[in-house]
């Protein structure tokens, strides 16, 4: 059924769209609806944080000092830089510069992995010093790759209720880290598609949408960092 007009249709353009712009706008709208859902999903955790902090402001302040500010700051810089490289990867894809897109996606993935490595050492320290959620608070646990410290060693004396802070700390940073892991997955998928030459200056919507997701992961961390690490 190759009519004159359909033979000139680009291969990336689905049948139910009239133009490439319409297809790109629809895909992007869908992505923004998903991002809106992500914001509301994280809002549940932020509201829980708000409730417990308003009930126990002193406990949150004391427990916050047990977190490593330098590690948190380093991870913030790493994530912000990965957002820059993700934005530049989209720009490269827009220009049809395939090799540049590949390089920038690789840097973004490397930053995501670096973030997880720092997070691993942070969690390890929390486990070894017993800075754990709820009923486990105060009892040092084993964690892969290091010696268990004695109770009280290296960990500051904290009020008993600090377990609530570490419950929120582990759930919020844990769910965020899960988003980082998913991000590494989708960035890798986009990297492979780019290497196969599936994107061009006319069609780069998947690169755009994955970058949008990655920026959202960055946005969540922008709020998590001061709320968890920088209390007074």
């Amino acid at each position: 059924m190759a009519t004159d007009s359909s033979s000139r249709r680009p291969t990336f353009l689905a049948d139910h769209f009239d133009t490439a712009e319409q297809q790109a706008d629809a895909a992007k709208l869908g992505m923004w609806v998903f991002l809106g859902q992500e914001i509301l999903f994280f809002a549940g955790l932020f509201v829980a944080y708000g409730v417990f902090r308003s009930w126990h402001p002193d406990v949150f302040s004391a427990a916050s000092h047990a977190l490593s500010k330098p590690m948190g700051t380093a991870n913030t810089v790493v994530l912000l830089f990965s957002s820059l490289t993700a934005a530049l990867a989209v720009r490269a894809a827009q220009r049809g510069a395939r090799h540049q897109t590949t390089a920038l996606l690789l840097v973004t993935i490397a930053c995501a992995l670096a973030f997880l490595v720092v997070k691993y050492f942070e969690y390890q320290h929390k486990f070894h010093t017993g800075l754990l959620p709820g009923q486990w608070f105060g009892v040092p646990r084993t964690f892969p790759g290091g010696a268990v410290m004695q109770r009280g060693e290296a960990a500051p004396a904290l009020p008993a209720g600090a377990g609530a802070f570490f419950s929120l700390y582990f759930v919020m940073t844990g769910v965020h880290a899960l988003h980082i892991i998913v991000g590494i997955g989708v960035l890798t998928w986009i990297l492979i598609r780019n290497l196969r030459g599936q994107f061009s200056a006319e069609f780069f919507t998947p690169v755009d949408n994955v970058a949008l997701y990655w920026h959202l992961v960055d946005l969540v961390w922008i709020y998590l960092f001061p709320l968890l690490y920088l209390i007074d």
Binding site: V33, Q37, L40, A43, G44, V47
Partner: peptide, 12 residues
């Protein structure tokens, strides 16, 4: 869409 999401977070 973003602004409405943030408003709903405010209500929450």
């Amino acid at each position: 869409i973003l602004i409405v999401s943030l408003m709903m977070v405010g209500v929450f």
